[in-house]
Design a protein around this nucleic acid. Structure first.
Length: 405
DNA sequence: TCTGGGGTCCTAGGACCC
DNA sequence: TCTGGGGTCCTAGGACCC
């Protein structure tokens, strides 16, 4: 049976949500109506545009521009800081509304959902449902969405990306040629800034050119990615809407430092603080990690990473920070000037699957109890209020950051 | 003037084993 | 003494997404 898929995409999500929140708090200006952006903090060297209003877009401001560029393009532009707890709140409210339509709903990102409506249409049509969702979100939640209507996820996502804001678009098989093939290849999902120039070199300029290109040739040149881009260009996508609550495959935190750091001792403290954050999040999911990874970015934007497989899966702060510190020592050498430090864990498994062997070791049991006590305090009094001795300095770097915990 | 943070997936090469 | 493939695991790095 043919799938009935909707893709719901919030228009200028971070900016719209900030606008709604400001209006709710009695602010008289709707920042969606003026040149405005949501941006990072230049003084913390994270000054890029995360979201923009239509008026800012008209000035040529693009997502991921530096704040400096945005100001040049649009003098007098208003800049507002990001606030992920607000975004989470509005994202949840959207998800709740959409859940009235189907259980088969996938949260693709903080501002995008896929809905599999195949078994939930009864007498109504998919397009009618799309318009209803579009209207209800606007009326009940105060922000606008684009809704893409199609028979698979890829086409629904491409459709929701057509003209914005506040629109419903269909992209059925018989519309692919008319609506999608004339678009430049850069518009195709999963074609980014490295692949596009290569295709242009091959005289492949539009999605239609790509659809008509030789599949085997693309396979030889781009591997699996080549097959995928050919299928996408032809509107082929058999993937399912992943509606079950899935746990993450990796957990990581990273930070761009307020200034470059050249001393190993300072980096060690930051790695420790990041390890603590990562393992805290890992334990919240009841997962254990088999791999620890440390990433460094130099002042010249050169990235390196080292990783290490653990003898036993763990979520212990002590274990993870120990390995992370070793990895840092492996990678760091003078005279490096470090701009960004990251710690992440991968190859995650369910804690309950390991319960037995975990408790054969008394030391593990002791560590787990200690972590639990600290986690409970952090949950009760706030993450930053509780610090382990010896990493107060590193904590200062992280404390101010509005990052996911 | 600079250039975020959190993810997923893929590839290539080396080590090691049969 | 020199020569194979195939398979698996691990690591570093890259591409892409929002």
């Amino acid at each position: 049976m043919r799938k009935q898929i909707l893709h719901v995409d919030v228009n200028n999500a971070f900016l719209s949500w900030t606008a709604v929140e400001m209006l709710k708090n009695g602010d008289s200006i709707d920042i969606r109506e003026i040149p405005a952006i949501i941006g990072g903090d230049e003084t913390k060297r994270s000054g890029i545009v995360l979201a923009k209003s239509m008026k800012a877009k008209e000035c040529g401001v693009r997502t991921a521009d530096t704040i400096y560029q945005a100001k040049l393009k649009c003098p007098g532009i208003k800049i507002f800081p990001s606030n992920f707890s607000i975004y989470r709140k509005y994202s949840d409210s959207l998800f709740k509304l959409l859940s009235e339509y189907t259980d088969k709903i996938e949260r693709f990102s903080i501002d995008e959902c896929f809905l599999d409506m195949t078994e939930y249409l009864m007498k109504d049509t998919l397009v009618n449902k799309a318009y209803e969702i579009n209207r209800r979100v606007k009326e009940e939640l105060g922000f606008t969405v684009n809704v893409g209507v199609a028979h698979n996820k890829l086409l629904a996502k491409m459709a929701s990306d057509f003209t914005k804001p506040d629109r419903v678009h269909t992209l059925f098989e018989n519309e692919i040629e008319k609506k999608m093939w004339s678009l430049p290849i850069s518009e195709l999902f999963m074609l980014g800034k490295k692949t596009v120039p290569k295709l242009l070199n091959m005289q492949i300029r539009t999605i239609g050119d790509l659809a008509r290109a030789n599949k085997e040739m693309l396979h030889k040149k781009f591997g699996k990615h080549g097959i995928m881009m050919w299928e996408y260009a032809n509107g082929i996508d058999n993937s399912e809407v992943h509606y079950k609550d899935e746990k993450p495959k990796g957990v990581g935190n990273s930070i761009t430092l307020p200034e470059n750091i050249t001393e190993l001792e300072k980096l060690e403290e930051i790695v420790l603080a990041l390890s603590e954050q990562v393992s805290f999040r890992l334990r919240k999911y009841d997962l254990l990690a088999k791999t620890v990874n440390v990433q460094l970015r130099t002042k010249d934007f050169e990235d390196t990473s080292h990783q290490k497989k653990l003898p036993e899966p763990t979520s212990s702060t002590k274990e993870i920070s120990k390995i992370a510190k070793e990895l840092l020592n492996e990678m760091f050498h003078k005279p490096m000037a470090i701009r960004l430090v990251g710690v992440r864990v991968d190859n995650l498994i369910e804690k309950e699957d390991m319960q037995m062997s975990l408790f054969e070791n008394k030391d593990n049991e002791k560590q787990e109890k200690l972590d639990k006590v600290i986690d409970n305090l952090k949950n009760k009094y706030g993450y930053n209020k509780i610090t382990r001795a010896g990493k107060m300095n590193a904590g200062d770097y992280l404390k101010l950051k509005d990052i996911k915990k």
